[in-house]
């Protein structure tokens, strides 16, 4: 290797080392915690091997919560992508007030997730919430519904809110993808007599696929790790029936002081997300070839 090829490596080395340290330190520390008996205040009481992992897997609730986390992630991500694609396509067309429409769609992104969840909590209040009031005024219900009193209504509402808050980010990725598609191929297809849906199926969607893939991967990571919506609305209750891994983990670490167990759950979550990303990337690349 000559000095010329070494130079760029030397230039990026400081940022690379810094980024590596910042990213790897918490992961290495988490791994260390997960293999130790850790007290409530972080005191290390000795190496215990896989005992924390064993305790986590012996807990019946963990598997319930894990399954619910998958359900939550798949529902929110699929729902988000399915709704975002047509909205992005519509926003990519030329129409009067396009700028305003784009701003309105993106606006919820500017509001913090916690604040959105608090507003929804008020809206879902059984006695004073806007939702019950609205449904009653149009005659759909004749008595107040306790939306957050039971998982059968609370969890679907949380999924719906999860979808609504994920839409702006997903649309921004998809709009980026749509503007990168050259317009001349559409003109050629139009001259060949293709219909709108033919162009959509054979041109737009295949060319948009890499961007949909990015949206899916990023949304899976964000939604899988999402905490505020579930926590603010129900704190994982009633009776742990809306708990997902992040809320379960938070209770373990900061309410019960079970730091070692919480570290083990974090590592399991990291492994699941890494596994998903690798599999998804592998499948996408294989399709490309």
């Amino acid at each position: 290797m000559n000095s010329r090829s070494l130079k760029p490596l030397l230039f990026i080395a400081p940022s690379f080392i810094l980024a590596f340290l910042i990213i790897s330190y918490p992961i290495i520390d988490l791994i260390r915690l997960s293999f130790n008996d850790v007290g409530t205040f972080g005191e290390m009481n000795g190496f215990i091997g896989l005992l924390n992992y064993q305790d986590v897997f012996e807990e019946e609730l963990f598997f319930e919560v894990l399954l619910r986390t998958f359900y939550w992630t798949v529902s929110v991500v699929v729902g988000t992508v399915v709704i975002s694609v047509p909205i992005a396509l519509a926003l990519n067309e030329d129409f009067y007030g396009k700028g305003i429409a784009r701003t309105i769609i993106m606006l919820p992104w500017a509001i913090s997730l916690a604040m959105t969840a608090v507003i929804w909590k008020w809206m879902l209040n059984p006695d004073y919430g806007m939702l019950n009031h609205f449904l009653m005024s149009i005659g759909l219900i004749d008595e107040n519904i306790g939306w957050l009193a039971d998982a059968s209504t609370a969890f679907p509402m949380q999924i719906l809110i999860g979808i609504l808050v994920s839409i702006p980010f997903t649309i921004s990725i998809l709009l980026g993808g749509l503007t990168s598609i050259p317009t001349d191929i559409y003109e050629a297809a139009y001259l060949d007599g293709s219909s709108y849906f033919q162009r959509l199926r054979t041109l737009t969607l295949p060319l948009l696929k890499p961007f949909i893939n990015i949206a899916v991967v990023l949304n899976v990571i964000y939604v899988f790790n999402s905490f505020p919506i579930i926590w603010i609305l129900t704190e994982g209750g009633p009776s742990n029936s809306t708990d997902i891994l992040p809320t379960y983990l938070y209770k373990m670490a900061f309410q019960f002081g079970e730091i070692g167990l919480a570290a083990a759950v974090s590592i399991i979550m990291l492994a699941i997300l890494l596994g998903f990303t690798f599999v998804y990337a592998y499948v996408s690349m294989k399709e490309k070839k």
């Binding site: 209040n125 059984p126 006695d127 004073y128 107040n144 519904i145 306790g146 957050l148 009193a149 009633p238």
Partner: peptide, 20 residues
């Protein structure tokens, strides 16, 4: 009150204050 698991302490107090 109905839907007991919907109510924290402040929610109950609010009901009481409204005469409900």
């Amino acid at each position: 009150q109905k839907n007991v698991t919907s109510y924290n302490r402040e929610d109950l107090q609010e009901l009481f204050k409204q005469g409900k």
